[in-house]
């Protein structure tokens, strides 16, 4: 089977140790996470993880089910790139003296719709939002222009293209449909 890039979106309760529980399912299979972004979601008390990794669909599907099975995980789904909108953010710390010498650098910044966050005599910080490819291409350009001091890129954030709102419907339906605890016989 071919390896593809998958994005897994997970909603969990916001409790200590949750990340460990999620990542342990990958460790168990020695699946290497490419990027991971974790932060609060639009629902109070619910955290959202966006994990991207290369893998075979069969194992990604199994690991997603195992994650969703965890007691404090509300929902876990996996997507291919054509099923989601996704972006990453990158920060580039560039040498101001090199930029002043070489006007190509400023042109590169404008050409790529990068935003300048800070300029001082020593360095300039530039921010770009885009796909991994866009971000890495820009990185290569800055390196070629010999102005790169530091570089950092986030993991991806993603929203599904589907019109269905997974978590909202989940909370609404399941919470109210839930059966009471089974009677002990």
């Amino acid at each position: 089977m071919d390896k593809k890039l998958f994005t897994i979106i997970i909603y969990t309760e916001n409790i200590a140790g949750m990340l460990n529980q999620v990542t342990a399912e990958f460790t168990r299979r020695m699946m290497n996470i490419d990027t991971i972004t974790a932060s609060s979601s639009s629902v109070e008390g619910v955290h959202r993880y966006t994990i991207s990794l290369w893998g075979e669909e069969d194992s990604v599907q199994k690991v997603t089910k195992r994650i969703e099975k965890k007691v404090d995980v509300l929902k876990a789904d996996y997507y291919t790139d054509n099923e989601i909108f996704f972006q990453e953010v990158a920060l580039y710390k560039l040498s101001t003296p090199v930029m002043l010498e070489n006007s190509e650098v400023s042109r590169t910044i404008r050409h790529n719709n990068a935003r300048v966050m800070e300029v001082n005599p020593t360095y300039t910080v530039v921010e770009v939002t885009g796909s991994t490819d866009d971000i890495l291409r820009l990185y290569d350009e800055f390196v070629a222009q010999n102005c790169m001091l530091q570089f950092v890129k986030s993991g991806r954030v993603a929203v599904p293209r589907s019109a269905q709102e997974v978590l909202g419907e989940y909370l609404f339906n399941e919470d109210y449909k839930r059966k009471p605890v089974k009677d002990v016989e």
């Binding site: 969990t12 309760e13 007691v71 404090d72 995980v73 509300l74 909370l171 399941e174 919470d175 449909k177 839930r178 059966k179 009471p180 605890v181 089974k182």
Partner: peptide, 12 residues
């Protein structure tokens, strides 16, 4: 405790 919102012990 007889309900955990993220946990469905008896799926329909």
């Amino acid at each position: 405790v007889d309900c955990v919102r993220s946990y469905i012990p008896y799926p329909t």
